[in-house]
Amino acid sequence: MANGSRQAAWEFFGQELKRRREDAGLTQVELGIRVFVSGGYIGQFEQAIRKPQLDVAQRIDDVLQSDGIFERMWRSLIDDHRYAEYFAAAAELEATATEICEFAPALVPGLLQTAAYAREITLSMNRFAEDQYIEEKVSGRLERAQILQGATRPVYWVIMHENVLRIPVGGPAVMAQQLEHIVALAQRRVVVIQVLPYAAGAYALMNGMLVLMQFEDAPPTAYTEAVYSGNLLDDPAVVHRSRAAYDQLRAAALSPEVSLTLVESAAEDYRRCASTT
């Protein structure tokens, strides 16, 4: 589904939610209390500013006795086979963010991946998958990166652990191309890169993968990911603590200038290795 038609579908979701809520004689605050979110969130759902999580859509169905329509619409809109099921909702939010701050403990973030690097990662986790499946996942990852193009792109700040530079995904040629791609994006000021070096010690253990997203007309959100699972976090206290943890990582990381030099050096090492094999 194209972005325009998907947004139109979310707007229909919001219109239907508003109609059924009003038919039930409930205010946004009253419905919010019953489904355990704020009245402001209900308003943002109705305006298609924010997308509800699945459990919220299910509770809305229960309260409004809507025979599962909001769960079915949610599943239809979020069910994007380009992404893992647990990440699809985060991808929807990512596309509307005005600022994205990410900590990558082991792998290059998806928004920065080249096709060859993305393919190696996808293959490593899906050894028995068909080629069509692999290419669909790679294509989806490259399409996500389109949000970094143009004047409306988000402010994007990435802290990568030094692991990201040293784990040879796909071999020297793939790594050289991948790191050169990151350098090019940083030089074009599309992204700010910092490297958290091994010397930072325990700071590297503070978090797993973490993404913080800011929006123009919606509260900030955090996303964390573990093995075959992901969590969108929008509780203000949790997001605040996640931001504080990210700030500590940023303070412990190398400066953007020194980080870029380190990435360039690693790319050169991989390129030399590739040329001798």
Rank of each mutant, 00 (worst) to 15 (best):
P236Q: 11
L249I: 08
E264L: 10
M213N: 11
G201W: 06
Y246I: 12
L233S: 14
V211C: 12
D235Y: 07
V239E: 08
T221D: 01
A204L: 01
N207T: 14
S259F: 03
V239G: 02
L232I: 15
A202F: 02
M213Y: 04
D217T: 15
L260C: 06
L212M: 08
L262G: 12
S255M: 03
E216V: 13
V227M: 12
S242A: 13
S229L: 12
Q248R: 15
M206E: 02
D247K: 09
A202H: 01
A237W: 05
L254F: 00
D234Y: 07
M209Q: 13
A244D: 11
V258W: 05
Q214L: 01
G208V: 04
L254K: 06
R243D: 02
T224N: 00
A218T: 05
Q214C: 11
R241P: 14
M209C: 12
G230I: 08
L233V: 15
V258M: 08
E257L: 10
V227R: 13
Y228I: 11
S229Y: 01
L249R: 01
L212C: 11
R250Y: 08
E216S: 13
P220D: 10
M213T: 04
A245L: 09
P236T: 07
A202C: 03
E216I: 14
V258R: 09
E264H: 04
Y223P: 01
V258E: 10
S229D: 05
V227I: 10
L249G: 07
R241Q: 15
A226R: 09
E257P: 15
Q248V: 15
A253C: 04
L205W: 03
A252T: 11
G230R: 05
A218P: 05
V238R: 07
